[in-house]
């Protein structure tokens, strides 16, 4: 039997999907096409519109040592933030799974940070890490000058990374906990009967069985560190001191809207977009095939 609704009015279906279409167009296709346009053109110095320059903008970006510094920093940022966030989330999830089976409150408490907007968390962490007044600043009371993210680049980067990791813990925790709770209890008991203690069971049974989730989170965290880091950095350090917290996404903003080098920024954003797309692709292709036990 044909199960389809027909509209008499040809216009109505289009009107119904229009809001969604407009949103996608205005916030994705239009900016993406603008980025493509700018990435392959250059504004002439004395007016007269843009000229086609092929891959010149990309060549310039890749030829810039400062850009590669930013790429390396982004890599470090991604690894550190992802590593810290996932490790802490996993430890918390393991504890909660072990001792608080069925308790809902704790699960909720851990997800809250995820609901906080990055810039808001950035402001909070600026207070926490403030060398004069913050919690960490009390260290300066004991050893003057030991902590100063305003002047020390390494401190600044560490501060942003820790904040980013903290924001992601809730999200990672929920996924890890859900994955752990999916493991049937009898499998642990079988492990216990087979002579494996808790640590051994964790390594031999729990970790392999949550591998698909771990992989999923790894990709999601890396993508997030490439894109969501913007809000944090803008609020906490604005890329400073002297560019020491400038990651790829921040450099795009800085070059484009501060340096007014639209073409260079557009080329960089195309690179970042391809990177994120590649990661997403890996996610989809790999996760189903490799790390799946039937």
């Amino acid at each position: 039997m044909e199960r389809r609704a027909y509209y008499r009015n040809r216009l109505l279906p289009w009107l119904l999907i229009a809001p969604q279409l407009i949103l996608i167009f205005v916030f994705f296709y239009w900016p993406a096409s603008q980025a493509l346009y700018w990435a392959f053109t250059l504004e002439q110095a004395w007016g007269g519109g843009n000229v086609w320059v092929g891959f010149d903008n990309f060549r310039q970006v890749f030829g810039d040592a400062r850009y590669w510094n930013t790429v390396m920093r982004s890599g470090l940022y991604a690894l550190a933030a992802t590593g810290i966030s996932m490790t802490l989330a996993l430890v918390l999830a393991l504890f909660v799974d072990r001792s608080l089976r069925g308790t809902k409150i704790f699960q909720d408490v851990y997800i809250w940070p995820y609901a906080i907007a990055a810039p808001a968390a950035g402001v909070a962490f600026r207070f926490i890490f403030s060398p004069e007044a913050g919690l960490v600043g009390t260290l300066n009371g004991m050893w003057p000058g030991i902590w100063n993210p305003a002047t020390n680049g390494a401190h600044a980067l560490l501060m942003v990374i820790v904040c980013h990791a903290w924001l992601g813990i809730g999200y990672n925790f929920i996924f890890f906990l859900a994955a752990l709770q999916m493991i049937p209890r009898s499998m642990f008991e079988a492990g216990a009967m087979d002579g494996a203690g808790p640590a051994r069971r964790m390594i031999d049974l729990q970790l392999p069985l949550i591998a698909p989730t771990t992989f999923f989170l790894l990709i999601m965290n890396i993508i997030s560190s490439f894109t969501d880091s913007f809000g944090l950095i803008d609020v906490m350090t604005e890329g400073g001191p002297v560019g020491s917290t400038e990651v790829m996404v921040y450099k795009i903003y800085f070059d484009g809207f501060r340096g007014l080098d639209y073409s260079g920024a557009a080329a960089q954003s195309i690179v970042l977009m391809l990177l994120v797309m590649a990661l997403t692709f890996v996610q989809f292709k790999w996760i189903e095939r490799r790390i799946h036990y039937a």
Binding site: S186, M187, A190, A294
Partner: peptide, 14 residues
């Protein structure tokens, strides 16, 4: 010194 066979087998799937 006991070994157990579980109702749902509880095999290690990986």
């Amino acid at each position: 010194g006991c070994a157990m066979v579980f109702q749902n087998y509880a095999l290690y799937p990986h």
